[in-house]
Amino acid sequence: MSVKHGLLALLAEEPMGVYRLRKEFEARTGGSWPVNIGQVYSTMQRLERDGLVAKASQQDEDVELYEPTESGRAEAAAWWRTPVARGEVGRDELVIKLALAVSAVGVDVRDIVQAQRSETMRAMRDFTRLKSQVPAPGEPISSPELAWSLVLDHHTFTAEAEVRWLDHIEASVARAVLTQSRTETTDRDEAEVPR
């Protein structure tokens, strides 16, 4: 992704200069993805090089305006249509830590789960505090506020999914202990190795 595609999609609405583009982008993504003016400028240069934008035919007196070319419009339309691919799954520290904790000696998975759950709940409470400052569902709301609110919802739902996963780990581990311990499995495996 794609600041590039985001900017292209905005230009497809009307020609804009880099300052206005930056402002629109930040406001309409709820400030979730800050960009600096240099980034916007260099993105425009690359898009121009790739034939996706051009200097607008109607120019402003003070600033240079850009507009998408035909292929730029097609690219923006394709971006709207294409679902975003999931990033590489399971590659974060928490996943690795908990996977290891299941079999690590002298580590109680439940303690790790609880510590993480508290931390994630704390983050969720921060998101919720911010959320309480935007109008409630059904109340009048500006589109930047709605965007910001939905970005906060994303963070909250993602954190919630993590808490649910932690709950699931705790329950799974508790149940697994009832049937067979890790050590017994290891002993049996070793016993089966021919000497």
């Binding site: 439940r110 609880q114 510590a115 759950r117 508290s118 994630t120 709940m121 969720m124 409470r125 998101f127 919720t128 309480s132 909250t156 739902f157 954190a159 919630e160 808490v163 649910r164």
Partner: peptide, 21 residues
């Protein structure tokens, strides 16, 4: 639901009848 618990000032976690955190 963690999402709704996040509206509280504090969250108390219970496990086997004991406050664990």
């Amino acid at each position: 639901e963690p999402r709704f618990a996040a509206w509280a000032d504090r969250t108390v976690f219970l496990r086997d009848g004991t406050v664990v955190d």
